[in-house]
Amino acid sequence: MEKICILNFNNTYENQDFYENENYIIVDFSDLKSVSRYCDEKSLDVIRKRLEKYVDIKIKFIDSGNYHYISYLILEKITKPFTLVLFDHHTDMQPSYFEELMSCGCWVKKTLDDNKYIEKVIIIGANENLINSIEEKYREKIICFSEDFIRGNYNWENFSRKYINSPIYISIDKDVINYKEAKTDWDQGSLTLEELKNIYINICKNHEIIGIDICGDSSYSGEIYEVNNNNEINNKSNKKILEIIEEEESFYELNTI
């Protein structure tokens, strides 16, 4: 298994063990203030500099979905054409309420605005209303599959062969997964982990994967029972996602020998 990078903003992973049998490193950001959901340029630059030495670690767990904008910083480091495949119940294509702030809801839009290497964005599992609200000027570079669409049968491998012509970066927000198999800070979709596996493997198995990030764990800090229950559920889903990544990597290696 590839080395994995655990980004600690909110001590979200301290009571999980999904990574303890892996080759992992923890990068601490818990000292930073006012970086949940929104982040100003000064704080963003601090995060950028701390991430610098870990840019080559392929798999990153980036805490709650409130920090999904970290994907923007990771994608900055890619220096060749790529396709972003985003599993998310939200499009993250909303205009920022404050121009000077990065947010977990606008990072995809800002990536399309700023990153010259991104060729296409594939969004899987988003709410239909959010898909419909994407600005027209971005639609040429975005292909969306709504939550309702992915419940049906679809040949994801054929889609991937036809529409993806560059290496893939994968970003998974666990809010795309149903409430029984993941606990997040946001409204959630209905995708099962088994469905996620099927889509992930069939999209990725014929392409080079240049990076993967996973977010969407719960940062809830209320009743002890509920916190422990959330951690147990999310620990299982994180283990399963690592298994999916490992299975796809093995398949790709076998088919490129």
Rank of each mutant, 00 (worst) to 15 (best):
N21G: 04
N230Q: 10
F98W: 14
S160G: 05
R50C: 02
N229L: 10
S36L: 08
N228R: 09
S190H: 13
K240R: 14
D187W: 10
N155Q: 07
S103Y: 06
K197E: 15
I177W: 11
F82L: 07
E246T: 12
Y220T: 06
E157V: 03
N66Q: 06
S219L: 05
I123P: 00
C5R: 03
Q188Y: 08
K240G: 02
N230L: 03
C106Q: 03
E248P: 00
K205I: 13
I168H: 02
L112W: 01
S71N: 15
K137S: 12
C106E: 10
Q94V: 15
Q188V: 11
N206T: 10
I241T: 12
I199V: 13
Y38H: 12
S221P: 08
E20T: 12
K60W: 05
I164V: 05
K120I: 07
E2C: 01
E194C: 00
I26M: 03
I134W: 00
V27P: 01
K49I: 09
K236V: 07
N23E: 11
I59H: 06
E147M: 04
I25R: 07
I244D: 09
S160K: 01
I74P: 01
N66Y: 13
D175Y: 03
K116I: 14
K162Q: 15
N255W: 09
V85T: 04
H207N: 09
I203H: 01
S34P: 01
W107V: 05
F82V: 10
F9P: 04
N202R: 03
E243D: 14
P81H: 10
T83F: 07
Y67C: 04
N234E: 12
V46D: 01
Y117P: 06
L193E: 11
E135R: 13
G211C: 07
I177N: 04
I134F: 00
D114G: 05
N23S: 11
I241K: 09
T184Y: 04
I257T: 09
K197V: 10
V46P: 07
Y97H: 14
F29M: 04
I172Y: 05
N153I: 14
S219A: 12
Y72G: 01
L84T: 09
S36T: 06
E246F: 06
D113F: 08
I209V: 13
N132I: 08
L86S: 06
E119G: 01
N255G: 09
V108S: 07
Y72A: 05
I212V: 12
